[in-house]
Design a protein around this nucleic acid. Structure first.
Length: 213
DNA sequence: TAAACGATTAGCT
DNA sequence: GCTAATCGTTTAT
């Protein structure tokens, strides 16, 4: 874990822009997901970039949503306050990052799937290990987690100073496309995957559901 | 208490 | 294109 980065870097080294308040997330996750495209995801002392791909998970009529069957020990953070973090381990290997949305106890969240790196990417590259292409750095939910050195201890923490994870609005508002979600076995037909139109930093190319270019 | 499985990725063939 | 890796949560005995 020598590559994680140093949390001693002051927050003023965040990218310039407005840190989104918790109220931004206190709405249904499909609306939040659409507006998150183009915002900047940043982990203090590590790095980040512009969000190019996210997926919304709604508690109602969405079998793929972890909250669909009520609260369990694992998904409890999803039922917490909006603007908090829900992380979990997928396939025993990857840490996936979700942002809790909507009112408390609703159980709605947005999964972060890809971002376009900004600024200094040294720490992201170090965290990801010996990988070649820029795209493999941060495209795919598991890669996002590894690049940002996420860990289970971030679970249920608030965005901002508490967790060192920020969502920043720097004024960019790129065109957004909506497609079906990928990588799930149920509920994949729902149009809840949001992409930055034309971005080269997307996951799932050549896989299911038509990609996103 | 045991077994199955997943909002995935990397490394082969 | 196919499969191993890898482990916490869920579901089944």
């Amino acid at each position: 874990m020598t590559c994680v980065g140093t949390d001693s870097l002051p927050s003023h080294e965040l990218p310039f822009g407005r840190i989104l308040p918790a109220g931004f997330f206190a709405r249904p996750s499909d609306k939040v997901a659409r507006e998150l495209i183009g915002k900047v995801l940043w982990r203090r002392g590590v790095g980040g970039g512009r969000l190019t791909e996210v997926e919304a998970y709604l508690p109602k009529d969405d079998p793929a949503c972890h909250a669909a069957r009520g609260m369990t020990k694992r998904n409890a953070p999803m039922f917490g306050p909006a603007g908090h973090i829900y992380v979990y381990r997928s396939y025993g290997v990857h840490i996936l990052l979700n942002l809790v949305c909507d009112e408390e106890s609703v159980g709605s969240a947005v999964l972060i799937r890809s971002f376009e790196p900004m600024g200094d990417t040294d720490r992201l590259r170090c965290n990801r290990g010996e990988i070649a292409t820029a795209k493999a750095l941060s495209c795919g939910p598991g890669r996002v987690g590894q690049a940002l050195a996420l860990y289970m201890g971030l679970n249920s923490l608030s965005l901002g100073e508490t967790s060192g994870v920020y969502i920043i609005d720097d004024g960019e508002s790129p065109p957004v496309r909506c497609t079906t979600r990928i990588g799930i076995s149920q509920g994949g037909e729902l149009p809840l995957r949001y992409l930055m139109a034309g971005s080269g930093y997307l996951s799932g190319q050549g896989r299911t559901n038509g990609g996103g270019r």
